[in-house]
Design a protein around this nucleic acid. Structure first.
Lengths: 191, 191
DNA sequence: ATTCTGAATCTAGCAATGCTAGGATCGGGG
DNA sequence: CCCCGATCCTAGCATTGCTAGATTCAGAAT
């Protein structure tokens, strides 16, 4: 009992160690630099150990992405609940989203541009993803109009934010105007 | 003279052949399937020939992306000019954008999610990119309000469209509601 | 205390990738 | 008819993700 539980605990710790190391390495040098060899060296184990925890590199990225979505949801909830006024809440919400993505671009990429499955608002999603999407619907609800589906509005708002983050992060928009674009976008969803 | 020009012509044809083959292969099986070996086999040349035309695989993708941006610009211009009313033009424009991305997802990915450089509205862009971005500013101009920068508005509109396309294309939004989201988004930029 | 057992871990290797060096080949010019 | 230079291919490199087999080591049983 005791010995087996210790092993399970060590295993869980190493699982987390892998994900954390992958995130750090990706944030420092990009996901291309996260090779299984470098990752194994970083956690001071041999390569095959990774495969006793994850099916492969993609699974590691997916685990990191899921972790990131959980953290994003918490961040968004704090931003939303920090402002009593719905409009102010939405502004804080959007700013929080952009800041999260800007501060951890590699993690954000794993969450929404590199990983292919890992949905968000679909029905068969894990709880973490559902909860994250719920932050969007909650933020957007005060501005829903009759005849418009609430989830459709939330999806659209999310997509618009994601577009800003994605294009800005790949330097496709003029630098230094991120805030302008964000306020412009949010205003469009407020009116 | 004649002989050299023939060689240059053949070279240009092969250049185009490579890009076309890459696009076809990518559209059929994704960019991961576009290996230099398969691509070389497809154009019935050996691998190193690719490197006498392009610096590497990334350069080939970039060439395909640039070609795609040119085609997108033409598509957008047609959609925009096909409708005299500014609002209708914007709707057609947005629908054209989404349709282009949906019909050629791999090409779109090369244009705006995989390739990292290749900007669009920045000052030092090639003419093709500038022209494409100009389609956005032209479409959005009738709805610009005093105090809002026109290019900022265009960038934001583009980003929002891109977000819809990107998330929808990776199955992160509920299927079958693409049109709803699009009209909702465009309405926000019309009012 | 010693041997057995099974899990945990590593070494070594595979096929596939992007890319390159070197030689072969082939056509045009002398 | 021969040479020369551009063109093209064969062969190979290092690196990638991933896996099979051997090895080691901790705990159990005698």
């Amino acid at each position: 009992m005791s010995i087996q539980s210790r092993r399970e605990r060590e295993r869980a710790e190493r699982h987390q160690l892998i994900v954390t190391a992958a995130r750090e390495l990706a944030e420092a040098e990009g996901w291309d630099a996260v090779t299984t060899r470098r990752l194994a060296a970083r956690i001071e184990y041999s390569q095959p150990v990774l495969y006793s925890h994850f099916r492969g590199k993609e699974a590691i990225m997916k685990a990191a992405a899921l972790e990131g979505i959980g953290e994003l949801a918490e961040r968004l909830r704090a931003a939303r609940q920090g402002e009593p006024d719905p409009a102010a809440a939405m502004r804080a919400f959007a700013a929080g989203y952009v800041e999260f993505a800007t501060r951890q671009p590699a993690l954000y990429a794993a969450m929404f541009t590199l990983t292919s499955d890992l949905s968000f608002g679909t029905a068969d999603s894990p709880d973490t993803l559902r909860a994250a999407f719920a932050e969007f619907t909650a933020t957007v609800r005060p501005f829903a109009r009759p005849g418009v589906d609430l989830e459709t509005l939330a999806e659209t708002f999310w997509a618009a934010l994601h577009g800003l983050v994605a294009l800005d992060g790949s330097h496709r928009l003029r630098p230094g105007r991120t805030a302008d674009r964000l306020t412009l976008l949010v205003d469009r969803f407020l009116c």
